[in-house]
Design a protein around this nucleic acid. Structure first.
Lengths: 307, 307
DNA sequence: GTTACCCATAAACGCAGTTTATGCCGTCAT
DNA sequence: ATGACGGCATAAACTGCGTTTATGGGTAAC
């Protein structure tokens, strides 16, 4: 009973190479053309697509002597595949930035939430505009980011929180919001009117550890409502908090960036909070006076969403 | 010059099995425990994680005699990995539903946009609640969905569009919105005030083919503004429209569900449209009088977002 | 009819990941 | 202290999957 994952996901889903190949076939319109584009031979492509079709039990491409086009099901599958490949691209640029050496052209420091959920997308977009730019990434809390930027060991920093560290200029690039979320079975999930700030403050919650940006904002917001109760769990990562909440341990408080997917699929339910604001600004920061230039400026302009 | 993808993505990103393993290590707290959970041996897990670390050039886990915990970088990488795995899960449930046979317990018919972007998430959530439910999926335009539902060949249908087909009851499950989007280099990208309906109507656009739900809504919305100009391109799939717009061919009009990622990463820019509404309702439909019951009811309740 | 493009199939090859079999190192209980 | 336990690393042999090479059949255009 429970989660006996009989056959792992990796055996039911084609590997990334096959998904990439499918996208290439969709784009190019032929197996052999797609194979050329990926640097493999035509029989290899043929065999991979065929293996994929038998594994899924669905015909994906209509083969003809003058090319291959997607079937209706193939088009659907291709779009799902595209989402996997895009997530893999985000993984790639993130990991590459993480590994980046000291001599990288653009050194970025970012808070955990921003590094996890926003930066990969920005870096993909940046790569689209300036393909040559090598990026390195250092992730840490606001104090660490501020230190790296002040010491000129990072060209641009991204922080979340209420105040801007001393000695830094900043611009608000987005508004983030903390959300209270519970598993669907939790009593709060049925309360359409949500909870009052005072009740939230009095309830043991699943939280990030003291010192995290998330925790600071929550402390400040609930100070007027009597201050935070003893936490139910204090965990070191966003992920740990999320899985504790998913398993029904209790209400958690996380950035809406972190729980967006879970809310969308209804694995977690947002609980509205009345009586206090849980918004916080996401800011780009740089040493006072030293306006970002070059690649840092390019990245900055990418991050500024239209109002 | 251009897109010489020297080394394909699949060689720079660990395969799904490795990513799943990393998630298991994060969850369980030890390599051998994770290995047990996935049905492989401990040396295999050790070797895979190590290979991943050397490939990424980053230490992911701190090994100790009493278990393994993620490093700070490892936590970041794990979260990126989670997004890939979740996309793969969506692929899996989608593909599985697509293959579903006639005797499946729950037969769903959905329009393309809903099947592509929303249904996988719902099915994952449904699997969480009712793990045993086998789902089959048929994707097509509104008329096809209506036909399947009326003929009782589908237990539940999902359509987008302005009107509800005859003989069906419906409930609005979400609001969708068509957005006009251009590549960042396009002149419209800099117009913060957007375009008037009349100008949009007079401009050749990249569109889905006539008969698609997207096209119908656009036709209706711009009828008052003089009707649609001759399209710049008429393409058969959402994907094709998107890539044409991405390559700078011109403005496209698509569901916000379809271009959400591109807008987020700024690879496409939304152009506001004044003077007309491009909203459309997404509806669940069933034969008049025959309220959904059983699994269909479960799925329906999952899709209804809180107001 | 010839050329050019496309896809399918068969056989041999090579490598990546796996298992089996050990050994070392801490921790905890006795 | 000491022995049992759990966890990780390493080495060697094995297995299978994806690959290339080689070949054949089919259709459209010139």
């Amino acid at each position: 009973m429970g989660n006996e994952e009989v056959v792992p996901l990796a055996h039911r889903v084609p590997d990334l190479g096959a998904l990439e190949l499918l996208l290439a076939v969709a784009r190019v319109g032929s197996l052999s053309g797609a194979a050329r584009g990926l640097g493999i031979t035509q029989p290899a492509a043929s065999s991979r697509i065929r293996a994929m079709e038998t594994r899924l039990g669905v015909a994906l491409v209509d083969r003809s002597p003058r090319g291959s086009t997607l079937t209706a099901e193939g088009a659907l599958v291709t779009d799902w595949a595209r989402r996997v490949v895009e997530a893999a691209e985000a993984f790639d640029v993130g990991a590459q930035a993480l590994r980046g050496r000291r001599d990288s052209r653009l050194r970025v420091a970012a808070s955990m939430t921003i590094a996890e959920y926003l930066l990969p997308g920005w870096l993909i977009a940046l790569r689209g505009q300036r393909p040559g730019t090598a990026v390195s990434l250092h992730a840490g809390n606001s104090a660490i980011v501020a230190g790296l930027v002040l010491a000129h060991e990072a060209d641009l920093g991204f922080v979340e929180g209420l105040s801007v560290p001393e000695g830094l200029d900043s611009v608000v690039i987005a508004q983030d919001r903390l959300v209270v979320a519970v598993a669907p079975g939790h009593p709060w999930a049925r309360r359409s009117r949500g909870v009052e700030a005072a009740e939230l403050a009095a309830t043991p919650l699943i939280l990030r550890e003291r010192g995290s940006g998330t925790r600071q904002v929550l402390d400040a917001a609930l100070a007027a409502a009597g201050g935070l109760a003893q936490p139910l769990l204090e965990l070191a990562s966003t992920t740990a908090v999320k899985s504790a909440a998913l398993s029904g341990a209790g209400p958690c408080v996380l950035s809406e960036l972190a729980v967006g997917d879970e809310l969308g699929s209804r694995r977690l339910v947002e609980v509205p909070v009345a009586g206090t604001g849980l918004a916080r600004a996401l800011r780009a920061v740089w040493p006072t006076g030293a306006r970002p230039a070059g690649p840092a400026r390019d990245l900055l302009s990418l991050t500024r969403r239209p109002a």
